[in-house]
């Protein structure tokens, strides 16, 4: 897929977006709402059109931009599943097969076998006769997936697949989806606004913002080596340091002439009782938030009164024996610097 633009009226939803997905890959489109990720997905599906003349959608080097949604061989799972309310689970899954032109339409027995196979795949063998309103959210999600897979799509497209589910079901289904993908190996693109979800499930993540792809890389890379401040901010909590303050945090930044901004994850903030080599920053503990396995510590720097968040493991917290108003030193294990003009 390359160079896709899409505008609604005066506002441009997508700006010359290009994305190349390898076959068999599981790719997440990650971004805040309004970043254009769903629009992009719908353009890939053919449910919406890109601006005329702006680019094309290619499947295996074949331009499908002008192919109708029904002929693109995609499987689309809608955010709210869009199951056919008036049909049973079986009929829902069989719909795509039964809709084929009669020359290509498989026989009834073949359809039945195929649907049963899919039901087994999504672990809903006993639900064939139920209607969508008799299913839980997670079950509906799986039916929608089975329905999309029934037509043996080249590409599976999922719009916020876990958006409408509650937290526990979400986590379960996430792992299940990953396993499912490992079994069926269909090229899959899914949209999400949940970083954790994208990081856990996807092979590669395209982080989107304001109609552009900011970074397209593996989860580790996106997390460990974010391409720009936006990606860093979007992927988790962070502390921000402006280098013009004295006590600038990281050695290699000092060589730069422009004022860089430095981002540090809270769990990369190390808290020390002593200042071994004088390079650590003096700070005071202002608040301790106990969150189970992790403990969130709020500190304030002595030199410029800037507040800093740190995250310690439970063990480290107990070893330090921290209390409110303790005077400590902090050191940064890992940080990322970007130039000011890059910042948002």
């Amino acid at each position: 897929m390359r160079r896709i633009s899409k505008s609604y009226g005066s506002s441009q939803a997508l700006k010359d977006v290009s994305l190349k997905v390898n076959s068999g890959e599981l790719v997440a489109l990650l971004g805040p709402s309004g970043s254009g990720k769903t629009t992009l997905l719908r353009i890939i599906a053919g449910i919406e059109d890109a601006d005329p003349g702006s680019g094309e959608v290619l499947f295996d080097d074949v331009d499908v931009s002008s192919t109708n949604v029904g002929k693109r061989r995609i499987g689309f799972v809608f955010q709210h599943y869009a199951l056919f309310k008036q049909m049973s689970v079986f009929e829902n899954i069989a719909f795509g097969l039964r809709s084929k032109p009669w020359r290509e339409r498989p026989s009834k027995a073949v359809i039945r076998a195929k649907v049963e196979e899919l039901l087994a795949l999504v672990q809903l063998q006993n639900f064939a006769r139920r209607y969508p309103n008799q299913l839980s959210g997670g079950q509906r999600q799986r039916v929608a997936l089975a329905r999309a897979l029934a037509v043996e799509p080249q590409v599976l497209l999922l719009d916020e697949p876990f958006g409408a589910l509650d937290a526990t079901v979400r986590r379960e289904l996430r792992r299940w989806l990953r396993k499912l993908h490992d079994t069926i190996k269909v090229t899959t693109i899914f949209v999400t606004h949940d970083q954790e979800e994208a990081l856990e499930v996807a092979d590669r993540i395209a982080v989107m913002n304001a109609g552009k792809i900011e970074q397209f890389a593996s989860p580790e890379e996106v997390y460990e080596r974010p391409a720009n401040p936006f990606v860093f901010r979007f992927l988790g909590n962070y502390n921000l340091f402006h280098a013009r303050h004295d006590g600038a945090p990281h050695p290699h930044d000092e060589t730069e002439t422009a004022a860089p901004v430095t981002f540090v994850r809270p769990h990369d903030v190390e808290i020390l009782r002593e200042n071994p080599d004088g390079s650590a920053i003096a700070a005071k503990v202002t608040h301790i938030g106990f969150a189970g396995a992790a403990v969130n510590i709020e500190l304030v720097r002595h030199d410029d009164q800037q507040s800093i968040d740190a995250e310690l493991t439970n063990q480290a917290y107990r070893d330090l024996g921290l209390k409110q108003d303790d005077e400590v030193f902090i050191r940064l294990r890992n940080s990322h610097s970007f130039y000011e003009d890059y910042a948002i």
């Binding site: 053919g46 449910i47 919406e48 059109d49 109708n68 949604v69």
Partner: peptide, 8 residues
């Protein structure tokens, strides 16, 4: 004229 003309 219509937003999703081609699809539906």
């Amino acid at each position: 004229m219509a937003r999703v003309t081609r699809v539906i």
